[in-house]
């Protein structure tokens, strides 16, 4: 896979950042607007996949990239589990307890730990989809 023409490369270089920011927006506003960790994480993975497809395999040092995305995937699900079990350590032992204060509904910093769950699930989903894609691409080139 060699990458596409210079027009496609320039346009994706402009667009990928916007797609990435839109994914972050969807993740962070998961408790206010439609969307959330799964949708936003998939959009973030899509921005990286766009760059890889447009620029060909030489663009990133993909092998290292795949190891890093695998690491982020593991870290995301580990943080999710730690946050879920964190409720067991405090006063009322309930799994998936809302530890933090709720705040006023409708603001960005509200709803306790739900935005944190959204962020961790977003990291996990983005890293998982990216490492699936990179695994296929690297396998093709190593052959």
């Amino acid at each position: 896979m060699k990458g596409m023409t210079i027009i496609v490369k320039n346009v994706t270089a402009l667009l990928a950042g916007l797609v990435f920011l839109y994914g972050c927006y969807i993740v962070l506003h998961g408790h206010l607007t439609p969307g959330g960790g799964f949708a936003g994480g998939t959009i973030i993975a899509g921005s990286f996949i766009l760059l890889v497809i447009a620029n060909g395999i030489q663009y990133f040092r993909l092998k290292k990239e795949k190891e890093e995305s695998s690491m982020f995937e593991g870290a995301g699900i580990l943080c999710f589990l730690l946050l879920a079990t964190g409720g067991l350590l405090l006063s009322v032992p309930v799994f998936f307890r809302n530890l933090l204060p709720g705040g006023t509904p409708g603001e960005l910093f509200s709803a306790g730990v739900i935005p944190l769950y959204n962020i961790f699930v977003g990291i996990e989903v983005a890293a998982a989809l990216l490492s699936i894609f990179l695994a296929f691409v690297i396998y093709k080139t190593e052959e």
Binding site: G30, A84, P105, A111, G112, I114, V121, A128
Partner: peptide, 30 residues
């Protein structure tokens, strides 16, 4: 829950176990 989006409230608060299972399925698939 304090969450305006009711779907997120159900997914991450009332039905947290299911979301944990979903994330684990994706992890195992990768």
């Amino acid at each position: 829950t304090g969450s305006i989006n009711l779907v997120t409230a159900v997914v991450f608060d009332y039905r947290g176990y299911d979301t944990l299972g979903e994330a684990t399925i994706l992890f195992t698939a990768v």
